[in-house]
């Protein structure tokens, strides 16, 4: 992926050089960059060698089609025939509300456990992608997991995840971009997105001693919450 991205950049540079000969185009180039401040960020790839698979990940911000996306996913799940197959493939991703993700490791842990469950024929939901949502949610209620962690009309920041082999690599990014309308931002942007009060509420952390101990130190509190939710996700399969 890095190679093709470099090629795009190189292509743009050459484009600029050519354009600089004509006055009007050279002035338009910086404006274009302004519109897409993060256009050079591509997706992240998790490589799980022992699960013999990878997970592709992109964070979209300022998403404008969340509600339509949700209807499309719902419709695709029941659509029949070849059109149905195509639609299911088009939305064959996990769409995750980024506000409820504390860190990259949090999401990575849910993806790992979901793939592990799939390998062991232990999926509790229909696909490995919905299984990620299931693992993120602290309860065993699948509908709740999808309502809370999936897309709804209210999402502006969405993680899009695709579990699959290396062969997906060349096409998965454009498929993600085709289905979500928004700005691709680096994963580090997550620190401005995470909704800590909601996470604490869903994980019932407000009364816990560890949280009280952190007091007013929000940085410390976030580190503790992050550690607890990662552990909760990792051990979900053995929670009664």
């Amino acid at each position: 992926m890095a190679v093709s991205e470099d090629m795009v950049v190189l292509h743009n540079v050459r484009h600029l050089n050519l354009d600089s000969r004509s006055q009007e185009s050279s002035s338009s180039a910086p404006t274009m960059l302004k519109h897409h401040p993060y256009s050079h960020y591509t997706m992240e790839i998790f490589d799980f060698p022992h699960l013999k698979t990878k997970a592709y990940l992109m964070l979209f911000s300022k998403v404008t089609n969340a509600a339509a996306l949700k209807s499309r996913i719902v419709a695709a799940s029941t659509a029949e025939g070849e059109v149905g197959e195509q639609e299911r493939e088009a939305v064959n991703f996990a769409f995750i509300d980024a506000r409820l993700i504390t860190s990259k490791l949090h999401l990575e842990t849910a993806i790992y456990q979901a793939i592990l469950a799939e390998c062991q024929d232990g999926l509790r939901t229909r696909t490995v992608h919905s299984e990620i949502l299931y693992y993120l949610n602290p309860t065993h209620n699948i509908t709740e997991a999808i309502r809370r962690y999936g897309v709804s009309g209210e999402n502006n920041d969405i993680f899009v995840v695709r579990v699959g082999s290396l062969e997906l690599a060349p096409t998965v990014e454009s498929k993600m971009k085709a289905v979500v309308t928004g700005t691709i931002v680096p994963e580090a942007e997550l620190q401005h997105i995470t909704d800590w009060p909601s996470i604490k509420k869903y994980h019932k952390l407000n009364g816990e001693i560890a949280i009280k101990e952190a007091g007013q130190d929000s940085q410390k509190e976030h580190a503790i919450v992050d550690k607890i939710v990662i552990s909760s996700v990792a051990m979900k399969s053995v929670v009664q």
């Binding site: 842990t109 790992y112 456990q113 592990l116 062991q120 952390l205 816990e208 001693i209 560890a210 009280k212 101990e213 503790i224 550690k227 607890i228 990662i230 552990s231 909760s232 990792a234 051990m235 399969s237 053995v238 929670v239």
Partner: peptide, 30 residues
């Protein structure tokens, strides 16, 4: 299975109670 589960649960209980213990990263109880 029950011992792996028990150990993971004890760790989470400690984490929630502010005891310094290592966080859980993966569980494959079977």
């Amino acid at each position: 299975k029950s011992r792996v589960a028990g150990e993971a649960r004890a760790l989470l209980k400690c984490l929630r109670s502010g005891v310094n213990v290592p966080g859980v990263r993966m569980v494959d109880a079977s």
